[in-house]
Design a protein around this nucleic acid. Structure first.
Lengths: 189, 189
DNA sequence: TCCATTTGCCAACATGTGTTGACTTTTCTC
DNA sequence: GAGAAAAGTCAACACATGTTGGCAAATGGA
């Protein structure tokens, strides 16, 4: 009998399977429409297992929606390319495997209080500080707010609502056009 | 007996009361979390009445989420002020009584198929044509797409998520800053 | 092997949902 | 005022949800 939980292989695998299924379903249905039963079915196990492993639907969502914007240090960058760098970074994060938390959060943020609060503190903790190093502190909230509108809109239209003209935009166009906007918002030029 | 000449029929009044309550609740909770019972309670009537007057929750939502962007003819405007005019117009519509349909739609679009489809056809039928008169037809979808990201993002951040730094932006700043962005997106300059 | 622990499934509960039908009250026309 | 139609109420159904407890099966160390 070990006090230390070393590696219970089987349980870790099912736990991961549940998490993966939950990510997929939360991301495509949103918090309210996603059901424990559907997640369990997608993971190939019994709905009760979800409760045993994660405690509740709320806690499962919280765990699966966890992620980080992981912004680079903007002060160290070529000042003329801050906008483009920002957009490119966001695109990479949203499309990466580990960054799946953002679509999940965004899909539910409009109707779920926890997701909305999480989104809010995400910008407060990561975007606002990034703006502080780029210009006068007084204008940082305004610059962060403007940046937020453009980035949230891009993510919403492209990955959640999937508006055809936005989905069709190629990466270069997005980086150039929206990059120019972010450049202006972020530096206040 | 007609005691109050200017009052509408009783049935029209309750129908209007239900619609008003539904607008309020759909706008703040989203389609899934809003319940017929809650709407009925807010309207001060029995839940059954909602069914009698509107048939189903779906049809009530569809009716209440109906609205129009009602864009002005951009070709007739001062070409340098197209961006500002657009933003100012959107702000007016969203904050007007009759334009309440937009927040309703937006709040539900991320998790409700009907609302998402409605949003999609809204841009296809109103924003895209507006872009056609402002520049080359080939680039119209791209310009409309970019405009959509910025406008949806502003609406989402300010009216749905209520991100503090975006809520705090005063109207003039929004018109100036975001107007400049829309100007560039819409005219392709 | 044995047996305790882990892992899993089943049935069921409590609750909230949209929705329906039967019934009562109000309203309006003649 | 009588009677029909409209407006409103009540109880309940059928179903889906998150969640719980009991019990079987696998697992792994002694």
């Amino acid at each position: 009998m070990n006090d230390k939980p070393l590696k219970m292989k089987k349980s870790d695998r099912t736990r991961a399977a549940i998490a993966a299924a939950a990510q997929r379903i939360f991301a495509s249905q949103g918090y309210e429409r996603a059901t424990i039963r559907e997640i369990a079915a997608a993971a190939g196990i019994d709905p009760t297992m979800v409760m045993r492993y994660f405690g509740s639907k709320d806690r499962l969502f919280a765990e699966v929606a966890e992620f980080d914007l992981d912004l680079p240090d903007l002060a160290a960058l070529d000042r003329d390319r801050i906008g483009e760098t920002l957009v490119a970074h966001f695109l990479s994060v949203w499309e990466s495997e580990s960054g799946g938390g953002f679509p999940i959060l965004l899909r539910s943020a409009a109707s779920n209080d926890y997701a909305a609060a999480r989104m809010q503190q995400l910008f407060a903790a990561q975007v606002l500080p990034a703006m502080l190093v780029l210009g006068p502190p007084d204008s940082a909230p305004q610059r962060a707010g403007l940046v937020a509108t453009q980035m949230l809109g891009l993510a919403l239209a492209r990955y959640v609502l999937r508006l055809p003209p936005v989905v069709m935009l190629d990466r270069d166009t997005i980086v150039r056009e929206i990059g120019a906007t972010l450049q202006r918002y972020a530096t206040g030029a």
